[in-house]
Design a protein around this nucleic acid. Sequence first.
DNA 1: TTTTTCATCGAAAACGTTTTCGAAAAGCAG
DNA 2: CTGCTTTTCGAAAACGTTTTCGATGAAAAA
Lengths: 342, 342
Amino acid sequence: MEKIDLKKLAKELNLSIATVSKALRDSWEIKAETKQRVRDLADKLNYQPNPYASSMRKRKSQTIAVVIPEIANNFFSVVLDGIQVIAEKKGYHVLTYLTHESYTNEIATIKHLQSGRVDGVLMSLCSETADYQHLIRLKETGMPIVFFDRIAEIPDCPTVTTDDYESGYGATEHLLRRHCKTIAYLSLSQHTSINRKRQQGYMDALKNSPAKPAKNLAVHCGDENGSIMLAIKKLLSKKNRPDGIFASAEKLAIATYHVCNDLKLKIPGDLKVISFSNLRTASLLNPSLSTVTQPAFEIGKEACELLFRKIEKKSNNYMSEHLVLKSSLIARGSTGLDQKLK
Amino acid sequence: MEKIDLKKLAKELNLSIATVSKALRDSWEIKAETKQRVRDLADKLNYQPNPYASSMRKRKSQTIAVVIPEIANNFFSVVLDGIQVIAEKKGYHVLTYLTHESYTNEIATIKHLQSGRVDGVLMSLCSETADYQHLIRLKETGMPIVFFDRIAEIPDCPTVTTDDYESGYGATEHLLRRHCKTIAYLSLSQHTSINRKRQQGYMDALKNSPAKPAKNLAVHCGDENGSIMLAIKKLLSKKNRPDGIFASAEKLAIATYHVCNDLKLKIPGDLKVISFSNLRTASLLNPSLSTVTQPAFEIGKEACELLFRKIEKKSNNYMSEHLVLKSSLIARGSTGLDQKLK
DNA sequence: TTTTTCATCGAAAACGTTTTCGAAAAGCAG
DNA sequence: CTGCTTTTCGAAAACGTTTTCGATGAAAAA
């Protein structure tokens, strides 16, 4: 089964390579009968054009890159699903790169992306990233970039986010309404854009509360399981431990559940918990987990569509678009009324 | 920021393109001093070789494809993680394609892969696939293919699987030991390789049981949530409904939990449940879910390493490798003793 | 000195497309 | 029949690399 290319088709048909090429892309220069002959043989021999030769000549790769911190994560995997759906519809191919929350990985990946391997980049920053120089350089090469969720504040870069400030405010307010007196805010890193907004929402909700809780407790736990468990265990072992936790990432809530099991703390009796999460099993947990759920699939789709708009006509790259989708707060057992007495 | 290529470097350095190219790949033909000059300028101008030009000339794309049914799935996303880790280590790029459990999608994707876009393919079949002609054709073009989990029985194709028969046997045995009298087996599709083996294990375990349950109940639920819920609800509404369920996919167990909530059935009191699953929150569910857990990350890594062995030396493609990893059965609350009386 | 070897580099072909431009043939009007 | 347009096709350049092979000059051997 030898590789079949334009030259072979041309020889077989007694045509030139140019004619075969044009026939296959349905050019008006070629008469209908010839087109049919070419297509028939191409189908018969199962001709598949070499995408790299085509990319080189057209200077378009029909490929986009998705750069994300991790893939084994309910949020990112669903976002990727949304991206794939749109990309496939457009006939584009998707290269994924994982930074594993490492800044140096992110830099290396971004640097490589200058090579022309892709026509555009969809990206969510890693938790360590505090400097955007590498991204600015990439952007200056003319590469279309769309950020989602963990965005970089770069001029003229479209973004797709959720209403993080409002969600943070709402989640905190929810805990306050459930009579929490001391509410801790848990995050992976203080560097990310989403953390800044969610934490600000948390702080403002506390400030505006009539109860006026004394202080605000923001704990940045790092992104590895070990440090997370340690930080939470330390937090919940203090004499005046919080009675409410607002986790800004799913794994923080999971860790909180485990720590509570260890420390024999009852949720929601001793501690109420609400978390940003896309867990499909949130309602089946013990107790069911109150969540702020982001529309991950839509985020992926919207970000991808925004990217294609950038790719297809660079004209409007002076007006940048910032799409903000709404998360939904779903109250469940983990912030329910005290069940200790049951 | 204009694109910088070999020609620009060559002109700047008063060298030929050939020399610059060879210097950058550290050829022995070029003297050390020249190499240094070239590298310095390349670094300074942030030169990134065009991968498509390189791919064309070398007839190697440094890219592999991963074809999977879905990505928003704990198992497949972790497998992908393992794949990415190995691929990145090898300097390879990863294209992912989702079939969304559709046979026609799978065919279209596989057909496109004949184009030379990738050097190898990692694949898990979609649930509808019962015919392997498209895969055989791809293989006959010389494309290295490694199957994992849902494999195709094709001669000389390496596979990475788990001990599905033994796990199916073990899970069923576990339910029997927990005094289940009527055990149902739930699957998405009867076509997949894993289903055949797991179901065989289930049936053999029933046959070898001293209690000798009357019949075996295998229910193929389809892969969409609607049909799954319907099938399970129907199963659990029968007069002589089963008192044990062995789910061969995570989403089947989730659906079972929801149906039990609807029908006011208690797990494990009225119904014991064990499931193939990679849920990280299995232990936090209500009740905690007994699982057969596959080593997803290792599956991804091993499959990818197998693929690279195929890519790097085609010599040993007569001896095919079939790797079988062990799943682990973790007994939890959902198959615990009757708690109805508590 | 002449011949051989070695070290270093460049010219050019090749990878498989796409596209520009010109050529040939055919149709048409005058 | 002549001049013009239209239709249909092919030659060749280009995309940015890699690699083969030959050229050059200098050093080593004769």
